[in-house]
Design a protein around this nucleic acid. Structure first.
Lengths: 340, 340
DNA sequence: CTGAAAGCGCTTACAG
DNA sequence: CTGAAAGCGCTTACAG
C-alpha cells in the first residue's frame, strides 16, 4: 500500500529550530522540555499536522502500544460490547486495538494470532481457555503476554478476567430444578473447540445429577448462534413423546429463538414449557415473555481485561486473575411446571 | 511496553549463510530466489520461529498493511456485524484492522483518527459524512485515504460504500402513509453530529410533505440508542391529546422499545398504533409483534467498504462509490389505522 | 534543558 | 541470483 508523504520529526525539528531529540522528548516526556520551547514545538506540530511514524517509533523503542484482540466474532452482542469496553479502557492509556476474529475455529485463531503479533501487537486478548497445542506453543515460544476472558479457571497459571461458566450454568439449572422441573432438556451452543459452551453443558448436567429426585436431562441439542437454530431445536425437543417441561439454553439467542417458536406453535411460556437463557443481552427483555437468564458482566469484564493486560505489559510482576460473579435475572419465561 | 527478544532477519541470514537481502527477498519475492537457497532459508525461518518485525518493515517499505476503522460504537448490532465483514475481507488480503470508537462524538472521532493514523493505519473506514472541520482538515492535510460507510451521497467527491438514509426513510414513511395513516410521529436517533439520523428525519418529513392530503408529522422526539428510551418516547407520544396512529422510528432498538412499552401499557400494535423500525437487526423478529422495518445490507456494505479501501490503497486510480439499496421488510407492526 | 549520534529491523535500488 | 550499503523515522543513553 502506498502512503502519502507525511511530515517527519526532522521537518518539525527544522521548523522549530531544535534537534529531533527535543521533539521526541516534547512528545514523550514533555516535562523534560523547557516551557517556551515546548509551546513553540507544539505550535509547529499542530501547524504541520505532524504525528509520529509508528514504524520508526516501534523500531526505536521496541514497543508498539498496540494490543490485539481475537474474538470468535464481532457479530455477537456480548463480545461486541465486551470489546467496546476493552477498547475504551485501552484508549485512555493511549494504546490501540488490533482486532481479528477466529470464527470459533482453532486453526483460524492461530493464524489470526500470528497475524496480529506480526503486525506488532505487544499483547493479546483471547476468549476462552481451550486452544490448539500449536497455538499454545507459539504463544510460549514468542513469550506473548496475553489475558483470557469470558471464562475463569481457579487453578491455572494463565491470566483470566472472566467468570466460571460451569458454576453459572449449574446455578441456573438449580433454579429450574427448584421450581419443580424434573424433565429438563438443553439447547446448547456448539461445544467443539468452545470451552464456554462445553462448561455450560457440564454445569447443567452436574446440577441435575447432584439434585437427584428423579430429575433427568432428557436431551442436549447443540445449535449454532442463530435464533432459527434455537427454534428448530425447540421444535425437535417438543416433538418427543417424552417432552421436557423446561429447556435450559446455552445462550439468549437460542432461548429467544425457542420462545418465538413456542409462540408460533401456540405453546405458552412458561405455562406449557419454561425456557431459560444465558448472557442477558438486549433481546432477553425484548422477547415476549421476557427471558429468565444469567447476567454476564461483559462491560466490566472487558475493562478489567484491558487493565490486566496493560499491567502485564508495563510492570514486572504478573497480576492475578479476576473472577466475576454472574447473577440470575428472574423474568417471565421460567415458572413451575404445570401440574400433571 | 516491554517485548521479549525475537529473532531478527540478521539471525536468519547468519544461520542460513546468506545476506539479509536474500532473506527479505525469500519472504517478499520468493520467485527471485534460487530454489535450493529458498528451501534452506525457509527451513531456518521455521526452526527459529522468525516473523518479520512490523516496525522495521513499515519503516523501510512505507506501508504497514493495517487499516483503521472508527465507528460510533461496537455495542450496536449493525455496526458490529458490518465491522465483522469489513475485517474478514481485509484479512483475506493480509491486512489487519485497528479499531476505535467515537462514541458519536466529533471531537473524540478526531482524536481516534489521529491515534489510528499514528499507530500506522494506511487508510481508514469512517461512518457517516458529517465531521468537524478540523477533522476534514487533518484528513486532507495528511492525505489519508478513507472510505465512508453507512451513508451515501450522489454528488460528492468522497468515497462511499453505503446507502441513502433520506431515500430509505422516505420510502418507509410513504409506506405508512399508503396504509392510510395521517397522524404520524417519529422517534428518531439523536441527530446532532449524526447525518444518518438527521437524514432519516428529513426523509420522513419530506415524504409527509410530498404526500399532502392533510397528513401531518405531529412530533419528532430524539432519543439515544436504548430500548427504554424508545419506550419513554412512546409513552410521551401516546399521552398527547392528539395521539399519532403510527410512529416511525429511526432505528430498531427504539422501535422495539416502543413495542414493548405498548404491550406493558395494554395497547395493541398495530391495532391501536402502528410502529416501524430501521436497520432490520435481530430484535426486529424477536419482538412481538414482529417489526416492519428497513433492511440495511450491513454485511455486504462492510465487505464492499473493505474492497474499496484496498483498491484505493493499492492502485493509482480512485474507485467509485457504491450505493446499496435498502428494502422494506413487511412484518406485523404496521397496519392500517383503526377506523375513527 | 538540549544536541550529536548510534542504532532499532527491515527493504530496495544498484552492482556484479 | 546474490550482496553491500543506504536509508526509512524514530528513541535514548551520553555529553555538555
Amino acid at each position: 500500500m502506498k502512503k502519502p508523504a507525511s511530515p517527519t520529526i526532522e521537518d518539525v525539528a527544522r521548523a522549530a529550530g531544535v534537534s529531533t531529540a527535543t521533539i521526541s522528548r516534547s512528545i514523550n516526556n514533555p516535562e523534560k522540555v523547557a516551557q517556551p520551547t515546548l509551546t513553540r514545538i507544539q505550535d509547529v506540530i499542530r501547524k504541520l499536522g505532524y504525528t509520529p511514524h509508528s514504524g520508526g517509533r516501534t523500531l526505536a523503542s521496541n514497543r508498539s502500544n498496540t494490543v490485539g484482540a481475537i474474538i470468535p466474532t464481532m457479530a455477537n452482542a456480548m463480545f461486541a460490547s465486551g470489546l467496546q469496553s476493552f477498547q475504551e479502557e485501552l484508549s485512555t492509556a493511549g494504546v490501540t486495538m488490533l482486532v481479528a476474529s477466529s470464527g470459533y475455529d482453532g486453526r483460524h485463531e492461530l493464524k489470526q494470532i500470528q497475524s496480529l503479533v506480526t503486525h506488532g501487537a505487544d499483547g493479546l486478548l483471547l476468549i476462552g481457555a481451550e486452544r490448539l497445542p500449536e497455538t499454545r506453543e507459539f504463544l510460549a515460544l514468542r513469550q506473548i503476554p496475553y489475558v483470557i476472558s469470558w471464562c475463569y479457571k481457579p487453578d491455572s497459571p494463565l491470566l483470566f478476567a472472566g467468570f466460571d461458566n460451569h458454576k453459572a450454568a449449574y446455578a441456573m439449572a438449580m433454579e429450574v430444578l427448584n421450581q419443580g422441573h424434573r424433565k429438563i432438556a438443553m439447547i446448547a451452543g456448539i461445544s467443539k473447540g468452545n470451552d464456554r459452551a462445553a462448561n455450560r453443558i457440564k454445569g447443567v448436567k452436574q446440577a441435575i445429577e447432584d439434585f437427584g429426585q428423579n430429575a433427568r436431562l432428557l436431551d442436549v441439542i447443540e445449535a449454532s448462534y442463530a435464533q432459527t437454530e434455537g427454534g428448530d431445536a425447540f421444535a425437535q425437543l417438543m416433538n418427543r413423546s417424552d417432552a421436557p417441561t423446561a429447556i435450559v439454553c446455552g445462550n439468549d439467542v437460542l432461548a429467544a429463538g425457542a420462545i418465538v417458536r413456542a409462540r408460533l406453535s401456540g405453546m405458552g411460556v412458561p405455562d406449557d414449557v419454561s425456557i431459560t437463557g444465558f448472557d442477558d443481552i438486549d433481546i432477553a427483555t425484548t422477547v415476549y415473555p421476557t427471558l429468565t437468564t444469567v447476567r454476564v458482566p461483559q462491560r466490566r469484564m472487558g475493562r478489567s481485561a484491558a487493565r490486566l493486560l496493560l499491567e502485564l505489559l508495563s510492570t514486572d510482576h504478573t497480576p492475578s486473575s479476576i473472577e466475576f460473579e454472574t447473577e440470575i435475572m428472574h423474568r417471565e419465561s421460567l415458572g413451575p411446571p404445570r401440574l400433571q
